[in-house]
Design a protein around this nucleic acid. Structure first.
Lengths: 236, 236
DNA sequence: TCTCATAATATGTGCATACATAAAAAAAGC
DNA sequence: GCTTTTTTTATGTATGCACATATTATGAGA
């Protein structure tokens, strides 16, 4: 979504806002075609380029659906989209004025479980680097991290001293752009995790799972469980 | 993010992709200014408009930060953004080929708790409509919903038969565009909720809280807790 | 030195125009 | 009737130009 909240009096934003008003007021009915760009340009007394910009913005926001020659339709269910910013843990902690720390619990080159290999589309028997770590906030447990790394995608990771730099930061710095999948869930703390986190066994932990790929190779699968009470907010 | 995955050979997308490559390759260093539009236009042999479009896209994706006269900088931490689609429960259930149902548990016009009124920026003593409901999936508990509605923002809601249409759907249909705040968390099931959901008391429930405003008036605060095991996925 | 007005500058936007492209509609061929 | 080709059409993109706007940089005046 854009920055503007108040309707703009002029420019393409005004046309965008007027379009949104018509969608809301059902003057442009859900699922129906709206007038084409040239027609709207004539109506608003502006260039087609300007109408295009406005309608494109509404399409990006999920209110309209546009197809060449097919015209522009009002989306049936204005599916609400929220863009949430995935926090970089160190930064999130320091932004709150707290002291960040990270404790490496274990680091092993293990044959990965079959279910994991299947999900990563890797050959059975492939060895992955398994790293467990605890992120601290003012010395208190903040996030428990369970990470699998694929050395065949990022061989350098085997040389990195993960006591010095967290796997996450190293990846952000050295494997710049990856695509992937983010899964949010709530899981109960296992006895082991509870002991590390200093919370009750079975406590509800907000959990973020990230699977990232570089080109066609899986890079890492990381599961981060936040201490009880954590809330992730965003504006919609 | 846009739809394109593969680099485009021509057009503004090609410039966008080349810019992204330079950011990744640190040819444009984090935090540093990049050449201004006119310069890049000369380099790529295209109009400034085209460069503008490309850089604007990169800025919207969170890689660049632009300011008039100030120029364009590479964002220091390319904070990863994920756009997640807030599911409309009925639709989500039906899309999975399951039967949707909704059971109204209670509906009362109550004086709201002070903490809530403060959060909604309402006068102490204001009465709000408090609705508890259970969304069913093939007859099984799926989502527990606790909702507060503000009749002074949407008076018509008092006349609506919530047995017939869920508050959510009525709002989507009749109070089309609202801005608000989305908060994700994990909470343990209270004994009452556990009984309704048919899960263990204390079970970890993925919880989505949505606070929406229409103009300056709060419309609704809804807390939806999903049955254990629910996962919300998105691509990043 | 400090404050305030002024100029310089990079991005933001609008317009007229042209052509590209995808997809639907119409026409042609069988 | 059916398939294939052609035309039509709405959106997508590019360009050159002009002017708006927000800030930074500069310089004048006290």
């Amino acid at each position: 979504m854009c920055s503007e909240q108040r309707p703009a009096a002029f420019g393409w934003q005004a046309i965008r806002d007027e379009g949104l008003r018509r969608i809301r007021a059902r003057e442009w009915a859900p699922g129906a075609l709206i007038p084409h760009e040239a027609e709207l340009a004539a109506e608003f007394g502006c260039a087609r380029t300007t109408v295009n910009r406005a309608l494109r913005a509404l399409a990006e926001s999920g209110f309209l659906e546009r197809r060449r020659k097919g015209g522009t339709r009002v989306v049936l269910t204005p599916l609400r989209k929220a863009t949430l910013q995935i926090p970089i843990i160190r930064q999130e902690v320091e932004d709150h004025g707290a002291r960040y720390g990270c404790r490496l619990i274990s680091r092993n080159l293990d044959p990965a479980p079959d279910a994991l290999l299947q999900r990563l589309d890797l050959q059975p028997g492939t060895e992955l680097l398994h790293v467990l770590a605890l992120h601290l906030r003012d010395g208190q447990p903040h996030v428990y991290e369970d990470r699998w790394l694929n050395p065949s995608a990022v061989p350098e990771i085997l040389e990195v001293d993960l006591e010095q730099i967290s796997a996450n930061e190293w990846l952000v710095r050295n494997v710049p752009y990856t695509e992937g999948e983010l899964t949010l869930s709530a899981v109960g703390a296992t006895p082991e995790v509870a002991a590390l986190m200093g919370c009750a066994s079975g406590a509800a932990l907000f959990t973020m799972e990230r699977l990232t790929w570089k080109a066609e190779a899986p890079v890492t699968l990381v599961t981060q469980s936040y201490a009880p009470g954590y809330r992730l907010s965003t504006s919609i």
